[in-house]
């Protein structure tokens, strides 16, 4: 089933990407090409096959509960667009 313009707008919103109205069609078209191509997967029966999320067969390695980080606020905030009194600022968010 091809993706619709409405769906393109919905996923663009979820991904927080704005698309100009004039470009919607071209995105719709490209996404449909990509989806038609990945739809080839349907050719294979995968009933009962356990999905593989990761190639590694090792399990999670753990760290011990130690504080190993020092305060590096100054260095980290030197690359920040807007800060004040050590806080990151964004336009007002209304709860």
């Amino acid at each position: 089933m091809p993706i619709t313009e409405k769906e393109v707008r919905k996923i663009a919103q979820l991904a927080r990407i704005s698309i100009d109205d004039k470009d919607i069609c071209s995105y719709e078209d490209q996404l449909n090409k990509i989806l038609a191509f990945v739809d080839e997967m349907k050719a294979v029966e995968t009933e009962g096959i356990i999905p593989l999320a990761h190639p590694s067969e090792e399990t999670q390695k753990l760290r011990s509960d130690k504080v190993s980080e020092k305060n590096q606020r100054e260095s980290y905030q030197s690359v920040a667009p807007t800060t004040e009194n050590g806080l990151y600022l964004v336009p007002q968010v209304i709860e």
């Binding site: 993706i3 769906e7 393109v8 919905k10 996923i11 663009a12 979820l14 991904a15 990407i17 995105y27 996404l31 990509i34 989806l35 990945v38 997967m41 349907k42 995968t46 096959i49 356990i50 999905p51 593989l52 999320a53």
Partner: peptide, 21 residues
Amino acid sequence: LTGTYVLSSGYYDAYYRKAQQ
């Protein structure tokens, strides 16, 4: 956009899960 779509509700199984299988 493609990635958001294949993970979104209603499409996860047909795309993401299938790809993992």
